[in-house]
Each structure stands twice: as structure tokens, then as C-alpha cells.
Design a binder for these strands. Sequence first.
DNA 1: CACTGGATTGACTCGTCAGTCAACCGCGGC
DNA 2: GCCGCGGTTGACTGACGAGTCAATCCAGTG
Lengths: 206, 206
Amino acid sequence: MAARQPAVDKRRLILDAAVRVFARRGFHHCRVSDVADEAGVAYGLVYHYFSSKEEILNTLFLERWQIMLDAIAEIDQRENLPTRDKLYEVASFIVDSYRHDPDLMKVIIVEVTRAANSFGQVHLEKIREAYDGIGHILEDNSFKSGIPSEFAAMFFYGAIEQLLTGWIFGVLPGTDEEYERSKDLVVDTICGGLQPARASSPAASG
Amino acid sequence: MAARQPAVDKRRLILDAAVRVFARRGFHHCRVSDVADEAGVAYGLVYHYFSSKEEILNTLFLERWQIMLDAIAEIDQRENLPTRDKLYEVASFIVDSYRHDPDLMKVIIVEVTRAANSFGQVHLEKIREAYDGIGHILEDNSFKSGIPSEFAAMFFYGAIEQLLTGWIFGVLPGTDEEYERSKDLVVDTICGGLQPARASSPAASG
DNA sequence: CACTGGATTGACTCGTCAGTCAACCGCGGC
DNA sequence: GCCGCGGTTGACTGACGAGTCAATCCAGTG
């Protein structure tokens, strides 16, 4: 029945609680009971909605990652938006995702993205899709530079991920200004490079 | 006594075995007995040399990371080596570290670098030192480009780490040619950027 | 009201390990 | 020949925590 909606969606409650708990204590260092407690729900209910602790993490990752993949695809599709601006949009989306829900992004990056071997190949596949999405944006004539788009995509994504990692571990200050500035900096670096415009190289250079 | 050296250094044996086991099964999914078995040593001996499972991981990380920090510092110090070449040397060192001992690098990246919150602040500090070391290389007049060297260092390191991650998870082919090519690609991208030389290309003149 | 079935509860089970410890081995010294 | 001692052994323990399950609750139905 459509009317059968409970006042609160306990499943959602559990997922949200899990994000907080996983972010705070780490996936391996927390108990399922911590999640249940945080959600204000009985231990057993967790297993009513999820078959295992790992499936919770799984769900969190896939849910959020898919949103990002869709966003990348949508940005890619925009007509008459220069490639560089598309990259900015992607960077912006990811950074804003972190700003909007740092705990979730922390869990995804720290517990899933790097631990992809513990999990099934599903995650690997999904992560590769992100590379592909960004790579597709880069397959643009105006951007031919001898760098295969496949690699360019990895470097771009890697740079952004390192930024998030910096915020996650408190190495970088997480203020609104910093977020905005960082978006520009990644895109500037990846698009324009660190070296000032290729004039005749000064000093020693063959 | 100096003469009291056993034929084989069991401590080293345990560390090397741990690298293989941690790489194969993951730190959290393996037992201490797996490490002991792999080393061909009794379970208890592991606790003779290390106070906990985590201390083994700890030791592996610090040992190797320090070598990298020293290498970066040494490269930084080299006189009359252009900044770009220094970056190449750093990239080369890290990539070769992976080529030489992929298991160890996998453990360091997957189990330590990203999981730095589970551990003490020691690791954070050490990781930051790497950023600083690279950042210092970039504090070079010929490289002023509006990108703070602090960020530039993160992007550079992030790009390389993403490369390693690709090899670790089998997303990229790990052949000697690929390793060499990748070194060039990261440095080219980070130094020159993806976009071909700015508008009125000064390439012709000069 | 009696009945059905999904939602919810939380005490309990049961395997798994990290870490302990008492004994053992073998070499160098005396 | 015997002692001392660090290196070495592996059976054992104690805690912990994932996952189970039988019972209970409650909303809708006839």
C-alpha cells in the first residue's frame, strides 16, 4: 500500500547513522550495535534491512557514487561549454559533495575507494566508470596535448581526491573560501600546468 | 655480542612475510597466524619482536616512508637540476619503488595512507612531510604560476598516487614500458598542463 | 474481535582471533 | 658438565562482535 509509509523511514535512519559512525570510528573499528544505537533502533532491525555490515557500506557507496557518475555524464553532455569549464563543473560537484556531506565522502574515500580489493569487483567497475566519464570529457580536439585522456582523467581525479583527503584529515582548512579557491586551483593546474607559459625556457634548458 | 647474529634475521623475515600477507588479504582480513605461517615462524615469535599486529604495519610504513622522504630531500638539494627534472626524479623514485616492491607500496597506500585516522598522528605528520618536501622543490622562481606550492605538491602527489592505485587494482597494465611512460606523463601534465600552449602560441618565436 | 503479516525488539550463540605464557632449545661461558 | 639467557615454540584464554531467532508489537482487514 502506498499509505503504508511509516512516519520515519527506519532504513534511511540506519544508513544516515552508519555514515556518522563509520566516519567517526572507521568501518572496521565500529560495531553494528554502534550503528543501531546511533540510529535509535534495535540491533536486529539493522539485519532486517541489510544482510550484513558490509552491505550497509556497499549501499552508501553505490548510492552516492551513482549520483556522481550521473552528474559527470550530464556535465559532459552540455553543449557549447568549453572543456575547461566542464572540468571546473566536475571539480565543483565533487568539492561541493564534500562540503555538503563530509562524513559520507570521508567514508567513501577512506573505506571504499582505497579498499576496493576487499570488496567485489563492482566497486572497481564503478570507479573505472568515473575515470571514463572524465576521460570522455577530455576527448576533445581543443585539448589534444599528447596526454592520453585516460591518464589525464586519473591525474585530475587524483588531484581532487588528494584535496578531499587533505580536508578529511585536517591537513587543509575546510572553509568555504578554501573550497572555492581549491576548485580553481585544481583546474588551473591540470589545464595550464605549473610552469609559466612556454616561452623560451630561461636558464639551462636544452 | 656482534657475533651472535643468527643465520636468518627472524624479525626481518616476519616483516617481509607481513608485507605479502597484508597485500594479499588486507590488514584487517588476515590473522597474525597467517603472518607467522608465511614467515615459517611460530606464532609467539611475532609478539617477541612486535607488541601488536598494528605495530608491524607501523614499522613497515615508517621504514619505507622515511626512505622516500630522504630521497625527496636529496633530490631537492641537487644543484643545477631544473625544477622540472627534480619532479621527474621524485616521480621516478616513487614509481620505481612500486616496481621494485609492489606489495609493500600497496600496503602503504591502501592500509596506511588512507586510513591515517585509525592510527596515531605520527602518520599524518609523516605524510605532511612528503607534501612539504615536494612543495619545497616547487618553491622555485622559474615555477611561479599563481599556484601555491603547497597545493601544487598535493596535486602532483595525488596524481602519482592515483597511478599507483591504478596498478594496484589492475586498472592499468603494470609493464616496464608503462611505468616509464607514466613518469613522463605525470610530469608533463603537472608541469605543462593539458591545454596546448596558450592562444597566440609563442612556440614559433623564441 | 480475531487474524495476518510485516516491522521491531534484544538476548543469545558461536566462531574468531589478538595477545599471553610457561616451557623448551641451543649456544657461549666457565 | 652445567648454567644462564635470549630466541623460539604453540596451546590456551578471554574478549569481542557479527549474525540469529523467537517473541512482541501494531496497522490494516473482514
